[in-house]
Structures are given as structure tokens and as C-alpha cells.
Design a protein around this nucleic acid. Structure first.
Lengths: 145, 145
DNA sequence: TCAACAGTTTAGAATTGTTATAATGTAGTT
DNA sequence: AACTACATTATAACAATTCTAAACTGTTGA
């Protein structure tokens, strides 16, 4: 049975027509063992390669946002120039490797739960996320680039 | 004694010429009780008002980046469309109020230290920062905008 | 003091990332 | 097959940021 079947159903479930572009996008995004972190540009390239054919930037933006709104993707922001999406949509934490610009999910056991002792009055907490920036020990020249 | 004196010295210390624009910028940034969170556009407006005269966007970008490189400002990223700078350059945590788009420093006592049990092999941790997104309790319609 | 130089400011152009538009194409329904 | 609503596309528009080159200014040292 072709694996694309799953994604056709999945897309229908969330009210998106399973077009060739979207099925290919889903395969790139979700047909993998580990969670996947990507930028829009990464994704455009990967889908175009997979399809052996150009996919429009606009299509990728539209569909990524549609999947995000439906809860299948989540945006992660590292700094103003690096916006990533994550196929792991649960609230979870990240390492960011400053040498390689790579984002890595924290395993649930890597960090103890964050204990917030005092919240802003009248507000409820929607999410708590930790970002751990790492680099190799001899990488201090980054600061003087 | 004019308070600007401090900033002239401060600028000299970090190797920046104390021009009129920079001294005014420093007064807007650092002449306050509490730490200050701002966007570049906020800052351009505030400096122009203070000086009663236009300041060039490029100047503000240049000097903000210079101060950042020297360790007097720090960039905080909330999501791809909201980049803030912070006059509090220590490693510290934030609340982000999704109702007002306001960034608020956590008091050191508001959060217990984050306990990282496992790091990436061969890397050292440069920073650990927590972002707590909050909203008023009846604000769930945001999700369906 | 003032000339010379290096650093700075400026407006506007260029670039980058993202969103909007409108014409063409396609999936799903009948 | 034909109709309709939704999708895709290239391109335009837009916003944020960086670059550029000319004019300007703080600093140094004769």
C-alpha cells in the first residue's frame, strides 16, 4: 500500500485538498522517524527535489501556515533572522547549536520541569519553553566575527 | 552636572565616538530605573522626539548593533515578526504577554533555576533562557483569528 | 588653532523574507 | 462532462534590514 495514502487522508481530515504539492510536502515533513526542524527555504528546496519540479514559494508558505493553524506544525524562533518550523507540536524545549545553526529537540528527560513561582497577575500561562544555546568550546571567535 | 556626561564616557570606553545621536540614544536607552524592551522602530521614534529632529534609521541600526556587540544590549526573539532588544544583558527569563505584545523581565525569584540533566556531547552551554507566554484567561479566541 | 583623517550620519538604493493578487489550473461533486 | 470552489503559480507589493557613497564631524597632533 502506498504510504501517500496516509497523507491524503490526513489532509482531507483537516480540510485541505490533497493536491500533488501538498502530498509531497507531507511526505517530506512527516515521513520520518525523528521530528524535523526546517526553514521555508529548506522546505521549498526539498519538495522541489522530491518532485523533480519547481514548487511555488507561495504554495509552501500557504500550506505551512495552514498546517500550522491546524496544529501539525509549530513555529520556533531563535533570533530575528532564524525562524524555524518544527513537526513536533507539543510544548517542548530545544538546544540550538550556534556552530551549525541546528535546532535540536530536548528529550523530556534532559531537563527537569521548570518551576515558576510567581506569574503575572490575572494572566494564565500558555506555554513555557526553554532554549539552550550551545557551541563547541573553542568557538569563542564567533563573538569577534 | 549634566547626566549626559556619563554616556559620553561610556561611549568612549567602548570605542564609539560620542556623537549627538549616540548620546541621545544612550539617554533614551539607559537613563531609566527599570530595564527597557524595545523594537528599532520604537527607538527611532523616541530618539527623534527627544532630539526634536529626525534621526536616520541606519544610524539607529548601526549603533544598536554596535552596543549589542559591546554587550550593552541584547536581542530577544519572540516569534519571527517580533524582535526586541533588552537593556538587561544578563541571562534572564521573560514573560511575554500575548494580549499586549509586551515583554516583561522575570524577577530572579520568579523561576527556580533550570536543571539540565543532559547536554549535547562536546558542546558547552552558552545560555539557558525561558520564555513564558501568558494571556488573560478569556483570550482563547486568539487561536481562531 | 586648525588641518587632516578616520569614524559617523544620512538618504536612498538594494536585499531579504513574507504576504497579496489575479490569472490559470485542478479536485470533487453532480 | 461540466460546474464550482479551492489551489497553484508568477509576479507584484510590502516590511524589515543592510548597503552605499557622499557629506559631515569628532579627534589628534602639528
Amino acid at each position: 500500500m502506498p504510504k501517500t495514502f496516509n497523507f491524503i487522508e490526513k489532509l482531507r481530515e483537516v480540510g485541505l485538498r490533497p493536491t500533488k504539492q501538498r502530498v509531497n510536502m507531507c511526505e517530506v515533513l512527516f515521513n520520518r522517524e525523528k521530528t524535523f526542524h526546517f526553514t521555508i527555504n529548506d522546505l521549498v528546496k526539498m519538495i522541489s527535489e522530491k518532485m523533480n519540479q519547481k514548487i511555488s514559494l507561495a504554495t509552501v508558505y500557504n500550506t505551512v501556515h495552514a498546517l500550522e493553524k491546524k496544529g501539525y506544525l509549530k513555529e520556533i524562533s531563535i533570533d530575528s533572522h532564524k525562524s524555524y518550523f518544527d513537526t513536533n507540536t507539543s510544548v517542548h524545549h530545544h538546544f540550538f547549536d550556534e556552530d551549525t545553526n541546528e535546532l535540536i529537540d530536548c528529550d523530556e528527560n534532559d531537563i527537569e520541569p521548570v518551576n515558576i513561582k510567581k506569574n503575572i497577575t490575572g494572566k494564565k500561562i500558555n506555554s513555557v519553553e526553554v532554549l539552550i544555546k550551545v557551541a563547541s568550546d573553542n568557538q569563542n571567535q564567533k563573538k569577534f566575527k
